[in-house]
Design a protein around this nucleic acid. Structure first.
Lengths: 141, 141
DNA sequence: TGGCATTGCTATTTTGAATAGCATTGATAT
DNA sequence: ATATCAATGCTATTCAAAATAGCAATGCCA
């Protein structure tokens, strides 16, 4: 269903529009990932664990801005689904690794996220498109 | 404190970066508005009620994407703080109006949000700046 | 070796948002 | 005008994501 347009006053505020756009996009991504029974944070972990091998739970949390305590149920879910496994690094830390099943599932995740990113960018008029990511990155510095 | 940079893989995803940037900016705005003891949603309502007079609770909710049920505590807070009042339109609906106190507080809100929006845009390199809002708006259509 | 920080975790709380239901009232169509 | 349907403003409850506090064990460093 088409979303109601906010009043012009608010629509002209970059901060407000930024939030709304992010919410809309995340809802869309969540909906697409639900086909894999994964949440956005689940998919983020899979992508990250694949890209940076041997990360610990704490490290993943720092990168994704998820607190240690909240990583526990998240990783427990992924482990219960057979997507990740833990390998002791020393007696304190453990690396999070993708299982074979997790790697297969990661393929699906990549397909969905790549398609999602492509669709997202396609919605932006061509003349603004290349400026979008650099602008966002600048906000995160 | 400086945020940890996400892995390059994730930082190059517009969708992911969009979410992070929005979260970071909303945290910043929330922090600034806390000086007025207001939340972001509170401030949004005040700005909207001022811009479009005589809106009902339902209408405000539709514009701001807040469900009717969740408008109740929000408006109750603003009413308890003496910022808004309700004026019956008919026996079913009521308009939400700013009180004198609410109008005064709105001045502070506007000062903070304008400053915030200015600061936000200033963080974006000049060559990307003018493309930012149109890109976001395109995502909301 | 002593002190300090980190890890992974439990347990609990807080918060925002979602869902369901309800009585009343307004709008619509015949 | 009247029966039907939709909207309004609510209550009450649930749900999920995040935040907070605390803890035992371990690694790190002076």
């Amino acid at each position: 269903m088409p979303k109601l347009q906010p009043s012009d006053t608010l629509a002209s505020l970059p901060g407000y529009t930024l939030r709304r756009a992010a919410n809309a996009m995340m809802d869309e991504l969540a909906s697409r990932l639900s086909a894999l029974d994964l949440r956005v944070s689940d998919a983020s972990v899979l992508l990250l664990v694949d890209a940076r091998r041997d990360m610990t739970s704490s490290e993943i949390g720092k990168v994704l801005d998820i607190q240690r305590a909240n990583m526990v149920p998240l990783l427990a879910r992924l482990e219960a689904a057979g997507l990740i496994e833990r390998k002791p690094i020393d007696r304190k830390s453990q690396a999070i690794l993708l299982t074979a099943h997790g790697q297969a599932r990661l393929g699906d995740v990549k397909a969905i996220t790549e398609r999602f990113e492509t669709d997202l960018m396609a919605r932006i008029p061509a003349e603004h498109r290349e400026h979008f990511l650099p602008a966002l990155q600048a906000l995160l510095e």
